[in-house]
């Protein structure tokens, strides 16, 4: 589904990603772990198409298409979803309005009929259950006045509505208490399936107790330095990132 080859990227001229190779197949959950500054979030944002990042070498193929040639919305239409590490508050744009516009744009580009207001509302309400949110949530401005936990739940909620093929979760666990973490994990697990893949970026192993990965990659200094199964995450938890820093240096 996703094939990243020798990816190099810079932010304001500073190299952050220095040759990432990663293959994600449909149905898989990949965890990307690593110390602060290792390039985890950069990778997530490059996948979503944020233009503050410049790809200087390498390639990303998604479902056989050249992802780097696509605008952020075209990536969403193709089935990519980024759950933001820091979701922005957008005053004056309601959740429901944004989601309806987003979903219908995606459906249109996938050759599906657009949903009318009634059908959309039905779907939107149903999906609220997956993250235990109240209906009034729909009518509030995007993330405005939301607590940290509510913002993250909203990201997972949006994912549930948009049903992407590849979901990238950028530190969705940061700042969550254990109850919120479980809700977020349940939301993700409910979406797991043969046709869908996840890339879960996290600093801590904790989230992976609830979202059990198939593959774990350790990122350091802009490269994948180790790949293993879920036990690698446990190992990291025990040993910390110190040994990696030595290895990467």
């Amino acid at each position: 589904m996703l094939s990243i080859k020798n990816l190099h990227a810079t932010v304001e001229g500073k190299p952050i990603l220095k040759g990432i190779n990663l293959d994600v197949k449909a149905g898989e959950v990949h965890a990307i772990m690593g110390p602060n500054g290792s390039g985890k979030s950069t990778l997530a944002n490059v996948l979503a198409g944020r233009d503050d990042y410049e790809v200087t070498a390498g390639s990303i193929e998604f479902m056989g298409e050249d992802l780097l040639e696509m605008e952020p919305e075209e990536r969403a239409w193709a089935g990519i979803f980024l759950a933001f590490q820091y979701p922005v508050e957008i005053p004056g744009v309601s959740n429901i309005y944004l989601l309806k516009a987003g979903l219908n744009a995606i459906r249109k580009n996938q050759g599906l009929p657009e949903l009318d207001a009634m059908d959309f509302l039905k779907l939107a309400k149903e999906k609220l259950k997956t993250v235990e949110m109240k209906e009034e949530f729909l009518y509030r401005s995007v993330n405005e006045g939301f607590s940290g936990g509510e913002k993250k739940r909203n990201e997972v909620y949006q994912m549930a509505v948009l049903e992407p093929k590849l979901a990238i979760l950028d530190e969705t666990d940061s700042g969550l208490d254990i109850d919120a973490l479980k809700i977020v994990a349940d939301g993700v697990n409910a979406l797991r399936g043969q046709d869908r893949a996840f890339v879960v970026v996290t600093h801590y192993q904790r989230l992976l107790d609830y979202i059990v990965p198939d593959v774990v990659h350790v990122l350091a200094n802009g490269k994948v330095i180790k790949t293993g199964d879920k036990t690698l995450a446990l190992e990291l938890e025990k040993q910390g990132y110190g040994w990696i820093d030595e290895q990467a240096a």
Binding site: E71, E73, A76, V88, I90, Y97, G102, Q158, L162
Partner: peptide, 27 residues
Amino acid sequence: EYLFYLRARGVEESKARRMLTFAFVKE
């Protein structure tokens, strides 16, 4: 930042710009 967020959700750039312009002023 707002613009990128809306686009990442599938909203076409020109529509996202309209949504944000409208939201800004209607306050």
